Amino acid sequence: MADVVLAERAAAAGLDVEVVSSGTGGWHVGDPMDRRAAALLTAHGYDASRHEARRFDGGWFDECDLVLAMDRQNLADVLDAAGPDRRTVLDGERVRLFRDFDPRAEGADREVPDPYYGGDDGFVAVLAMIERTADRIVGLLAELLGRPEAR
């Protein structure tokens, strides 16, 4: 969901950025997103049809300026993919938790909960979290790219 929301919000702000999404495990590679997530995104005006699951590749660090992990386990897995020589350079610099940018995140509450095993209400809560965080990220990117009017 974060991939779709962030990409669409960045495009709407006129930012020339590429957003890619992946998991740290390979069990869903090639699959579309969860049907509940896709239905919710569609109901909120997003295009969820372009998403296809893939697995994170440590080689992407050469192509990505920022890698955002949804929870601490994903963060650790992504940093492990960087290897020991690059891990300390990337941690907190180019690899962050997505909710590090959430204006409502407090204290250690920085993880996006996985709604997969719960009910529809979990997807609704996660979408709201993603939308406000994506807005903040887009605002920061606009500033970094010299597009303050996109805030």
Score class of each variant (00 low, 15 high):
12 A>P: 02
12 A>G: 01
14 G>T: 01
15 L>H: 04
15 L>G: 11
15 L>C: 10
15 L>Y: 11
16 D>K: 06
17 V>T: 02
17 V>K: 14
17 V>C: 08
19 V>T: 04
19 V>H: 10
19 V>W: 14
19 V>K: 10
19 V>Y: 05
20 V>Q: 10
20 V>P: 06
21 S>N: 03
21 S>C: 07
21 S>F: 09
22 S>Y: 07
22 S>P: 02
23 G>S: 08
23 G>R: 05
24 T>L: 05
24 T>R: 04
26 G>Q: 11
27 W>M: 11
27 W>D: 02
28 H>A: 03
29 V>W: 00
29 V>H: 11
30 G>E: 00
30 G>K: 02
30 G>Y: 02
31 D>A: 10
31 D>F: 00
32 P>D: 13
32 P>S: 14
33 M>G: 13
33 M>I: 15
34 D>W: 01
34 D>K: 05
34 D>Y: 05
34 D>F: 05
34 D>V: 00
35 R>S: 11
36 R>E: 03
36 R>P: 14
37 A>R: 05
38 A>T: 04
39 A>L: 14
40 L>Q: 09
41 L>H: 08
41 L>V: 04
42 T>A: 15
44 H>V: 05
44 H>Q: 14
45 G>D: 00
45 G>L: 03
45 G>V: 12
47 D>W: 07
47 D>T: 14
47 D>V: 07
48 A>C: 01
48 A>V: 09
48 A>K: 10
48 A>N: 12
48 A>F: 00
49 S>M: 05
49 S>D: 14
49 S>L: 01
50 R>T: 15
50 R>A: 15
51 H>Y: 14
51 H>L: 11
52 E>I: 09
52 E>L: 10
53 A>Q: 09
54 R>Y: 03
54 R>A: 02
54 R>L: 04
54 R>M: 00
54 R>W: 06
55 R>H: 06
55 R>I: 12
55 R>S: 13
56 F>E: 03
57 D>Q: 01
58 G>P: 12
58 G>T: 06
58 G>D: 07
59 G>I: 01
60 W>R: 12
60 W>M: 14
60 W>N: 01
60 W>D: 07
61 F>M: 13
61 F>W: 03
62 D>V: 03
62 D>S: 13
62 D>E: 13
63 E>Y: 04
63 E>D: 08
64 C>S: 02
64 C>G: 07
64 C>V: 07
65 D>M: 13
66 L>Y: 00
66 L>P: 10
66 L>G: 07
69 A>N: 10
69 A>F: 03
70 M>C: 05
